[in-house]
Design a protein around this nucleic acid. Structure first.
Lengths: 241, 241
DNA sequence: CGGCAGATTGATTGGGGTCAAGGGCTGTGG
DNA sequence: CCACAGCCCTTGACCCCAATCAATCTGCCG
């Protein structure tokens, strides 16, 4: 039930058997399920709990008054949401499900218990925060410096790598529940242009994308196109560049 | 000597006299000075110390192989650099001075001493990290969703607010050591277009910018243009919206 | 079988990039 | 005190990537 979470946290810090048992216990405690395309938490709310994605995909986003929407990160199975949730008076962004999502809610007390009981898990959560910060910096670069073709290639590399690190690919194929509008909101492009750019990526033999499944046909070339270097994800061991 | 730092950290957490003395002591310990336009720390290096900017402006950036450069944040007096420095094996970005910079270097031991001695200062540093993360999300939105005019207005609002929070404006004027090329690297625009856009902002009576000094002529309108809401900076008290 | 979300296509426009050439300030050295 | 160098800033002409507007198509579901 919590393999993805175990794998994800294990990629950041060596975990003992006790650590793993603790993760299982915590994650089993307050499990919820929500349908696709619903808000899990909303900007401006008082934060009440930290979210751990057990199953399914979600995204964090911010909406501008005029309706423009920017996705600032994707959450895949194993991803903890923001730990900072407990420090802020108000959330400054929303989290919404993309697919049906199963997630655990960690209260402040749960969180404190973890940091007290297990330095290993605490370190892994902290390292995950840093990884997230690093991903945000990379997104700034992606959107600020790369053209549509490179940008989408980079996003796909990043997500594919994250999924791979929690065992959700077979090396070349994975689920792909994102619509072209989602990709547009994440990359600062329009859905129409995302469509044309994806076609180009297909025509160039880099990937196949249909029926909510992604197949990476030429990972090396896709990475080179996107200027993708997995180091910024800070996933231990997995530097199979 | 450390007023900016005191003010900055004080904006995140209530500090006692002891806390302030501690900050003074730490920041006085390992002070360095560096000329304008030099790297303070470089991507790929093993992190050795956390940087606290005491005086002058700096920027964090990442460079792509082909020379394109993206600034991912500006550091002004009072700003701590990344605390995560101690967790990562390798830095994933560089920090460079813009003006002449005076800064303190915090070793891991100094950092541990702070967290042990003063929960208040530790909380302030942690809150600063969160604020930085929030700024990064805002930059993603800025670059992803806004046009050049809005984008530059937003950047100026953000920096002006940060400077104001550490007493480095008189309410409408402040130092402005950034070249148009710096603004370009931060906003994902070209220097030429930054130039034309700044002229438009001047023509519209929003600001004056000359001789390395910025004057905000119409803060309300500048904020409205940039869609700037200071909340995401999480600066306590200063919500003079 | 209608209805709807998402993908696709075409035609046109426009924001911002690119290239290239001046202009102005400031510091330095003669 | 002047001259020159260098770094910025500014301007003009032109181009192109991506946005916009508007259908049409497809697959899926009730």
């Amino acid at each position: 039930m919590t393999e993805a979470l175990q794998l994800h946290l294990g990629a950041f810090a060596r975990l003992t058997g006790d650590d793993r048992a603790l993760i299982d216990k915590i994650a089993a405690k307050n499990v919820r399920e929500i349908g696709p395309r619903r808000d899990i938490v909303r900007e401006g709310e008082k934060p009440r709990a930290m979210v751990l994605i057990l199953d399914g995909w979600a995204a964090t986003y911010k909406q501008m008054r005029d309706g423009r929407r920017q996705i600032t990160s994707f959450l895949v199975p194993g991803d903890p949401g923001d730990a900072n949730v407990f420090v802020l008076a108000r959330l400054d962004h929303s989290v919404a499900s993309i697919t049906q999502v199963r997630y655990a809610e960690l209260s402040q007390a749960d969180f404190d218990a973890i940091t007290a009981e297990s330095p290993g898990v605490a370190r892994a959560l902290w390292a995950h925060e840093l990884s997230t910060a690093s991903i945000h910096r990379e997104w700034v670069i992606n959107i600020g410096q790369r053209n549509a073709y490179e940008r989408i290639a980079h996003l796909i590399c990043e997500l594919f790598q994250k999924l791979d690190s929690v065992g959700l690919t077979d090396g070349r194929r994975c689920d792909w529940p994102l619509t072209q509008a989602d990709i547009a909101d994440a990359t600062g492009l329009t859905p129409v242009h995302v469509n044309r750019t994806l076609q180009q990526l297909r025509r160039d033999g880099l990937l196949a994308l249909a029926a909510r499944k992604l197949t990476v046909l030429d990972l090396a070339r896709l990475r080179s196109v996107g200027g993708f270097n997995p180091d910024y994800l800070h996933l231990a061991g997995k530097s199979d560049r």
